[in-house]
Structure formats: structure tokens, C-alpha cells
Computed example of a mutant assay.
Amino acid sequence: MTDPIRLFDRALLRRRRDRAARAGGDHGFLIREVAERLAERLDDVLRDFPRALMIGSRDGASRDIFQGRRGIETLIGLDLSPAMAAADAGPVVVADEELLPIADGSMDLVLGLFSLHWTNDLPGALIQIERALKPDGLFLGAIAGGSSLKELREALTAAEIEIDGGLSPRVSPFAELRDAAGLMQRAGFQLPVVDVDTITLTYAHPLKLLTELRMIGATNVLHDRRRAPLKRATLMRAMEIYVERFARPDGRVPATLDLIHLAGWKKATGQPQPRRRGTADTAMSDMLARLRAEVPGAEGDAG
């Protein structure tokens, strides 16, 4: 047996979430935005899900977005942080996303609310989610992807090289779209769909972004991070570089978030299945020719 790769310090993540919960304040606009986008995708599914699990429920501030939606009668929250869960009106479970204490085949719907990208074993977490679903149950999730916080990553890297003569990991690596699609298939989900939204947030100053990340418990929890705090001179230079390279004409600075959406179904008898590649009975060229004949002025080639 070999130890699993420890990319993230999960104990530190729990402490950071606890600290954010104790700090209070309304800093959950990003989480609510993610929840609203998941809810829009849920609205596209024309069936009910009486029993649902929300992974990454935090303080329950997004509970009202899903409760009663698409027939949700029981919405169970799950969060790593005891302090976050204590603020949730419930029902809620304090648990690690990597070790879900959920019975197999017990959920009609599982929602992954912007927390699974901090798991050390994302494939394992997805497999557990798939097992927790009833036949024909649905998983909808959102994780941070590839280019998220690219501006901050670039500014910190440039400042550390300039001031300290080297660099250390300061911003988490995030999954790429193609990798996420493969993980869904490996976990056994049927009819998996993966897509990405790019959200651009703007701030009066990059320090406002850092404060926001701290207040939602989303600062650096990489296992191999440098233990010594970032020097003030390096931080200030990073903020200068951020403004120099990315400030907009109005003086505000952007922060990019790639939001990867995951959707997949638990296998069930009679469930629609995609056809194997190469078994189509109509050629793309024939469909395009038919389109041009039926719609005057329609042009274009397959590409």
C-alpha cells in the first residue's frame, strides 16, 4: 500500500474555514453565484429529486436557492468545517468530502458546491458520490478550473522571483476541462456533461481580492507551501505588478475564475445511452445539405 498524494493540507483547510465562519460578515457572494448557476442547470432537468445532498454547504447561506426546487423535500448539507456547519439551520453533517458518510443508493441528487477541487483524491470523491446516488440519480457539481486566479498567480510568481530570487507555490493548481470529463467517466457516471463558465470579478485593489479569499477560507492550503509567511516587501511588490499588468482603464483589477460544471447520472435500467462512435446512420454532410435546402441562406461547413 502506498500513501495517497497529499496535494492539499485538509486539516489546514478545515481551520481556515473555521476561522472564516467565526469572522462572520457577508462574504459569500461568490458561493451564491456558483449556487445560482448550478440551480439554473437543475431547472433544465424535468423531474423531481425529493432527497438531496449539498457537499460544501458551508454556513447554509445557499440552502434557500435549492430548497423546494425540483421537488427537493429534504436537503442535507455537508461541510468539512464544524464552525461553518454550526451556522447552518440544517440538517447538516460535518464530514470530509474524501470520506463521505452517506449510504449507498440513498440520494436522488448530489450537489457539489465549489469545494471538491480541494480534495486530494477527486476521482475517489466522485466514485463515492456516484455510489451515494439512487439508480437514475443526478450529480451536479462546480469546481474551480484551469485559469482561475491566473492574474494573482502571475503577480506572485513575478514578485517572488524579483524580490526573493525564487518562488514557491502560492495558488492552488486547478483541473483542466478535458481532465474533468475523464474523471466523470472513470467514476461511472452515465451521460456525463462537462462545460466551463468564465467569470471575471473586479476589485478596487488586489488586496481586496486577498481579503475576500481569506474571509471565505480559500487561501493557500497546499501541502508543500512555504511555511514562512510571505514577506511584506514581496506581497507589496506582487500587488504593484498585479496593478501594472492587469488594471483596467477605470483603475479596477480583474480576477478570473474558470468554473467547471460537472453533470452525470447514476446508471439505471432503461436509461438512454449514447451510441457508439461510428454507428450513426446519417452523415454530417447529408444533414448540412438538408439544412441548406430547408433554410434559405444557410451556409457553412462542419469544423
Rank of each mutant, 00 (worst) to 15 (best):
W265P: 10
L140Y: 00
G28R: 11
R226D: 09
K267D: 13
A35D: 02
V253W: 01
L46I: 05
V243G: 11
L7S: 08
I199A: 04
T269P: 14
D224L: 11
L13G: 03
K266S: 01
E176Y: 12
L53E: 00
W265S: 10
A159G: 02
A125C: 11
A95N: 09
M239S: 03
D224W: 10
A89L: 06
A181D: 06
G217A: 02
G124E: 03
T119Q: 02
E160G: 08
T157I: 02
L30E: 07
I143H: 05
A238V: 09
E162K: 12
G137M: 02
G60F: 02
T219H: 04
R170F: 00
W118T: 00
V93I: 15
I65M: 11
R10H: 07
T269S: 15
I241H: 14
A83I: 01
L167K: 12
D96P: 05
D59Q: 11
E244S: 15
R63L: 08
A233P: 04
E244I: 09
S62P: 04
L156M: 09
G145F: 01
R10C: 05
P296W: 01
L80I: 04
E33Y: 03
V193E: 12
A39I: 00
R37H: 08
I102Y: 04
D301I: 14
A89D: 08
K134Q: 09
R15V: 10
T256E: 07
R10D: 08
I161C: 13
D43Q: 05
F246V: 08
M54Q: 07
H117C: 03
D64P: 08
A268D: 05
R178P: 10
V34G: 03
R226F: 05
G90Q: 10
L126P: 04
I72W: 02
L257R: 06
L230P: 07
S147E: 14
E151P: 12
M1P: 10
R186P: 06
A132Q: 01
P101N: 09
V221D: 13
F114W: 06
Q67W: 11
V196I: 15
L75N: 01
I129T: 09
M107V: 10
L291K: 12
E240V: 12
M284V: 15
E130L: 06
G77H: 04
G297W: 10
L100D: 00
L30F: 10
T256I: 08
I5Y: 05
H223W: 12
D108R: 04
A39W: 00
G278W: 11
R6F: 05
I161N: 13
V94C: 14
G145D: 02
T202P: 04
F139C: 09
F114V: 14
E154D: 14
N220V: 05
I216P: 01
A187D: 06
